[in-house]
Structures are given as structure tokens and as C-alpha cells.
């Protein structure tokens, strides 16, 4: 789940050098999309609504980048940081105004059931979440390395001016990248809708974790985010085990600080410019 939440965040950060604080609210919107599709006349299963949720969030993110964030994309970093923060509090509070702060949840037929392998029981939901996260990550990785658009995106991240000179529409590429980041947040939201309580502020917890996972995995490193997500899950569990449940976050953040100070290119990355 952490990996799914972080992949889009890491992509946008790595490619565009934008820290999207609003990523968490995108996840929230994705979760609500799945929720409305579930309780609506279609009664669509959250796992099946992933593509729709992705589509909706792609569109929203694309528009936000194209018309708002793009205005200051080359300004000092504080500008984009604050802008996405402002968007996130606006979206979260608008959600609260229109949908109230009631806690909602999705209960499916398979919600309680698990797969028993030997002595281990794994809830089906978590298994499916893991599989979807891996599939999305691999899909994105393939898209970025194989497709023409993916290559244009990576070229833009390396040198904006060179990319422009070779005929890449940079503004469009950025909007597309941000849109893909949004779509991934939408997918993460759909996944979250099954196992987390759905509220307008549910995204906050995900942003902090997306931060940590992205840094652990290395910025913009798609498969790194997957590894980072797993590593983070382990660190959190160990933190809780050795220091007590209350220290879970403290340990995770301490690890984040150490990584930033000593391995800013991530655990799996290499020091390259």
C-alpha cells in the first residue's frame, strides 16, 4: 500500500522536481471515487474501479498542473511546495464541505476472508493490494523505458532545454507526468478504500509515508519506490516492536533523516548527477 501511494509521488518529484503535498488529497479523491462507484447503482467492486479512479485523477491532476502549478514550475522550490500545500488544504476542505467529515468504509463480500498458507494467514485484500501495486509499478517502469512518451518524459527530466530543442513540448510533458502521478494516486486511493477508513483527511498520513518511501527508494526511481515501500513497512514494524507502538513514527522519521543526511540518493540508488 505504501509503495502504491509513493510511486506517483516519487515520479513527480524525480521528473519535475516538485514535491506534491497534494498527492495525499489525490489519494483521498481516488478513494471517494471508488466509494461512490461502489455505493452507486453500478455497485462496482473497488478493485474493478481502479481504472476509472485512475482516469478521473489523471484528468484532475493534468488540469491542475497545466493551469496552476505550471505558472511557477521554475520558481524557487518554496513556491511549488506552498502551492501544492495550498491545493491540498483546499481540496481536503472542499471535500469536507461537500461530503462531510463522516467516516465511510467499503465492506465487500471478501473483506474478512484470508488465504491460509501453512500457519500463515494473509487477508485476500492485502494480497490483492500487493499484486496491484507490483503490477502498476512494473507497468509504469515499462511505460517509462519503452514507450515514446516515457522516453520524452525522462529526457525532459534530465535537461529541460535540450528536450525543448529536440521538439518535446515541455509543458505538455509536465502535465502528462503530473497526470500520471495523479492516476497512480487514484489507483492507490481505490486500493486504500478497501482497507482504510475513507475521510477527507485520510490523505495526510499517506503524504508523510510517500515522502519517506520516495527518499528511501531514491527520487523518481519507480522500482525503488516499491523497494522503499517494503523497507519502510519492515522498519515501521521493527520500530513498533523494539520501542513500543507509540514510537513507530519517531523511528520511521529518524530513519528518514539519517537517509537524507547520509544517502540522499536512496538506499538502492547510486550517487549520480
Amino acid at each position: 500500500m505504501y509503495a502504491a501511494a509513493a510511486v506517483g509521488f516519487s515520479l513527480v518529484w524525480g521528473i519535475m522536481n516538485v514535491i506534491n503535498i497534494a498527492h495525499g488529497t489525490f489519494i483521498m479523491l481516488g478513494a471517494y471515487t471508488s466509494y461512490w462507484l461502489f455505493v452507486g447503482p453500478l455497485h462496482l467492486d473497488p478493485f474493478l474501479s481502479i481504472p476509472l479512479s485512475m482516469l478521473v485523477m489523471f484528468a484532475i491532476a493534468y488540469v491542475i498542473q497545466r493551469f496552476i502549478i505550471n505558472q511557477v514550475i521554475r520558481a524557487p522550490m518554496l513556491a511549488t511546495f506552498l502551492l501544492t500545500f495550498a491545493l491540498s488544504i483546499m481540496i481536503a476542505n472542499l471535500a469536507q464541505i461537500f461530503w462531510s467529515s463522516d467516516v465511510r468504509s467499503i465492506t465487500t463480500a471478501y473483506s474478512g476472508s484470508s488465504l491460509a498458507v501453512g500457519g500463515l494467514t494473509i487477508p485476500w485484500v492485502r494480497l490483492w493490494t500487493l499484486l496491484v501495486a507490483v503490477a502498476l509499478t512494473l507497468g509504469l517502469q515499462t511505460f517509462m523505458t519503452r514507450s515514446k512518451i516515457g522516453r520524452a518524459i525522462r529526457a525532459t527530466s534530465m535537461d529541460v532545454d535540450a528536450a525543448r530543442l529536440s521538439g518535446v513540448g515541455v509543458a505538455g510533458i509536465y502535465a502528462l507526468t503530473f497526470g500520471i502521478g495523479g492516476a497512480l494516486a487514484g489507483a492507490a486511493g481505490a486500493l486504500a478504500s478497501v482497507s482504510y477508513a475513507i475521510t477527507p483527511t485520510m490523505g495526510d498520513a499517506f503524504v508523510v509515508r510517500a515522502f519517506i518511501v520516495s527518499v528511501l527508494g531514491g527520487l523518481g526511481n519507480v522500482t525503488g519506490a516499491l523497494v522503499g515501500g517494503l523497507v519502510y513497512g519492515v522498519i515501521e514494524s521493527f520500530g513498533a516492536l523494539f520501542f513500543g507502538e507509540g514510537y513507530k513514527d519517531v523511528v520511521a522519521l529518524a530513519v528518514l533523516l539519517l537517509v537524507i543526511l547520509f544517502r540522499p540518493y536512496g538506499l538502492v540508488g547510486r550517487a549520480t548527477a
Binding site: I19, F211, G246, V250, A254
Partner: peptide, 28 residues
């Protein structure tokens, strides 16, 4: 002393995580 060696985004994240971490730490 260590944190102010970081620049830009990294400084922002480091300070942000100190703020969040401090709150969690004091609460224990």
C-alpha cells in the same frame, strides 16, 4: 549543525520530519 548542510527540498523535508517526529516523541 547537520541539517543546515542540506539544501532545497532536502532541507524542507528534513525540517518537516523533525517537526512531525518531535511531536510524536514528546507525546511518548
Amino acid at each position: 549543525w547537520p541539517i543546515l548542510r542540506l539544501r532545497g527540498h532536502y532541507f524542507a523535508i528534513a525540517t518537516l520530519s523533525i517537526a512531525v517526529g518531535m511531536q510524536a516523541l514528546v507525546a511518548q
